[in-house]
Design a protein around this nucleic acid. Structure first.
Lengths: 192, 192
DNA sequence: GTCTATACGAGGATAGAC
DNA sequence: GTCTATCCTCGTATAGAC
């Protein structure tokens, strides 16, 4: 089934940003991969900033929907946390880290609208994670020795950092698993 | 006291890369801040890649020397770990994250020589950290429930991730402290 | 060592035909 | 919607004078 052009552009752009960052991808790259001319992209996304802003918005929406899915699977908090972590393992073998993780590196180069979208992404993610951690506390899946909000932030930091460090390893997926595996054992095993 | 030009160039370049990344800084930026012409930079560093390669090398050497200092201060492992973490808090208020953390985001764009330098940086850092963790185990400063190498890698991931996430916060330094503060309490407080 | 001048390609963007 | 043609700026890099 054939997708519409705007979606194709977003797909290619997303993969490129997750791979190379904001400053290192161009309309020419997209054009080549989608099979249209540079000028045609401007019809769908007048400027690069329009494109990236839309990219981040879509990325957040997709994440929200994935989180909702995890939540409604009827699995334990432990398993939910594991599934969440697995989301970050995804595009790793193609050198793709979290779109917003990458864009925080480019943060100061981006305009304020995009920055706001990124902040929004992390706010949403952190709050979802915090709620998950809270549920886990209530069901005695684990104990939280500090606020779930801070705990969520620490967790997210480790995930983002693990994605980055995984890039320098020969096998990035297993490097990521090594870090998060022990991390999960720590969080989910018999508690401190 | 007046520095030589090559060092000035490296200083400015380092601050720009830590701020904006590899692809988003140019010889023109450096020229303006150092007060010379673009062409003059090529005398000291023929290509951008030469410059960045040297940058990473210097960065690693400086880190090694800082770690050696920490090691020889005659302070406890706990205090040494805290000092190490504080290194990462440094340029944060000027939006400067770890040079090599930033460059892992740009990793796939970089040539293999620079990639090798970055790998080297992390190898050195991880091994220093692992040794510190090991000393802490021996002196009962803390317990390690897994290999110190893996523990070191987790620690480093969290630090790199915390630097990234700090960028999206209003006050990046306190955001970083919030994450690493609770993190240190976790590692250094009464153990699990 | 630093300058001016310049080459050359890439990047983002627009106008107007189809 | 997509194309060709074109603009203009920026980025890296080199040649050669001082």
């Amino acid at each position: 089934m054939k997708q519409n052009t705007a979606q194709q552009i977003l797909d290619v752009a997303q993969s490129m940003v997750r791979n190379r960052g904001y400053s290192a991808f161009s309309y020419a790259d997209i054009a080549q991969q989608v099979g249209i001319r540079k000028a045609s992209i401007h019809y769908h996304f007048p400027s690069k900033d329009d494109l990236v802003k839309e990219l981040v918005k879509r990325y957040r929406e997709i994440l929200e929907s994935k989180c909702r899915q995890i939540e409604h699977k009827g699995i334990t908090p432990q398993e939910q946390l594991r599934e969440f972590v697995n989301l970050y393992k995804d595009g790793l073998q193609e050198n793709q880290i979290c779109l917003c993780g990458m864009l925080t590196a480019d943060f100061v180069v981006l305009n304020s609208e995009i920055q706001a979208e990124i902040k929004n992404f992390f706010a949403v993610t952190e709050s979802w994670l915090a709620r998950l951690l809270h549920r886990g506390c209530e069901t005695q899946a684990w104990q939280c020795n500090q606020s779930v909000e801070v705990e969520a932030r620490i967790l997210l930091s480790t995930l983002q950092g693990a994605q980055l460090l995984a890039r320098v390893a020969a096998d990035s997926t297993s490097a990521f698993e090594q870090i998060t595996g022990d991390f999960l054992k720590d969080k989910l095993g018999n508690q401190r």
